[in-house]
Write a protein that binds this DNA or RNA. Structure first.
Lengths: 215, 215
DNA sequence: GTCTATAGCTAGATAGAC
DNA sequence: GTCTATCTAGCTATAGAC
């Protein structure tokens, strides 16, 4: 933990911040190099192209997030509790590194010209697909078990993404609404609580869950 | 309506499509010109700079959306019904032009260097602020009237944005989840229905609304 | 592994003919 | 109002010395 980061790690670090804030096209390799304390050409020793650097950054972030989402899905709790745990874990993951949500949101809605995508793009794609597949399966289970209403599962996945990823990616607009940073312990706690209740009351089947508001 | 569009309108039209799909930085004036059937220099006769063109496109989209959102807020219905009407109208607006949501999402979370923003940026900003202020006020009213739970109003605004704008901006990912286009009449109807129930059950105060599911 | 130098290209923006 | 030509500056990427 005290070892200084290698050049490669340092580059990934600063590139993550820059790509998250301004996106792929608006960031130049020269700027990344400067922020990493290197000459521009040194970047091309560590990464074949700008696209490879980008997808390696994106893959790292996705893996970091994915690593947090396995545990809450593996519990034996009922679907509603597993969903709550999944959302909490996702929020924790997004809140831990303020760059994650922006990068992820870009990765989600930006369409990367698959024509000139480097092989690293596939790995990122796979991690993302796995995350989406897991939450999709959980929702389907919950509907089939009668824990959730008969919702449209894909629509609900979309709502979950919007409610988590967009929120923490919203930058100035979100902070203007909230009246402060999105990432303070208070703001994160409140976000979890708000979504917990909204999802509980909004997704629970009508008769099977007469109680309201989980603690 | 049969009059051919002026060059200016044609430019705004094609620029909207390009900016929506790939973002400000990734689109060149040369490309916009080509798509509009003009030489690059002709663009600079109609627009002082790329930034001005971008903000004029964004302002147009925001105004188009804002124009749909006034009516449902001015009815005398209770807050829950006005909210449902607002969400339906927003979804209709976003679904009508598939470029709107992507452009709006970019405008929401991309941070535009305010240093070099043209005066046109302020107008877009004002329209956006007005939209956010109106929905904020409606939610606050509903909470104070006891129609809604005592939710965090800013968090709920964020959730509403995520559930609408992100959904229709999600492109390939969203279509992969849905298994088809986001913009078919069926998909739009389903989106409205899903959000209607989620918001009704998820936001309604506990005792005041014993019934579930609006028709 | 880092550097200087540079290739080859495209960007946004301007000048001025028509 | 549209064009050709051009400016300056930036870009990704490579070559090759150290």
């Amino acid at each position: 933990m005290a070892t200084p980061p290698s050049s490669r790690e340092k580059i990934l670090e600063v590139a993550e911040a820059l790509f998250a804030q301004r996106g792929f096209a608006a960031v130049g390799m020269r700027e990344v190099a400067g922020a990493a304390g290197l000459g521009k050409s040194s970047l091309f020793h560590h990464f074949r192209s700008k696209a490879q650097l980008y997808y390696e950054v994106l893959g790292r972030v996705l893996s970091r997030i994915q690593g947090r989402l396995d545990a809450p899905l593996r519990t034996a709790a009922d679907p509603m509790e597993r969903l709550q745990g999944w959302v909490d874990a996702l929020i924790d993951a997004l809140a831990e590194h303020p760059t994650s949500a922006r990068l992820l949101l870009r990765g989600l809605f930006e369409d990367h010209d698959l024509a000139k995508a480097p092989p690293e793009a596939e790995q990122a794609e796979r991690v993302l697909a796995r995350i989406l597949q897991q939450i999709h399966r959980l929702l389907r289970e919950g509907v089939e078990a009668g824990t959730f209403r008969p919702v449209s599962v894909p629509d609900t996945v979309q709502t979950l993404i919007g409610a988590t990823v967009y929120h923490f990616a919203s930058g100035e607009i979100g902070e203007g609404l909230l009246g402060g940073t999105l990432f303070s312990a208070d703001a994160v706690r409140r976000r979890k609580r708000e979504l917990r209740v909204l999802l509980h009351d909004g997704l629970a089947a009508a008769v099977a869950t007469p109680t309201r508001r989980n603690p």
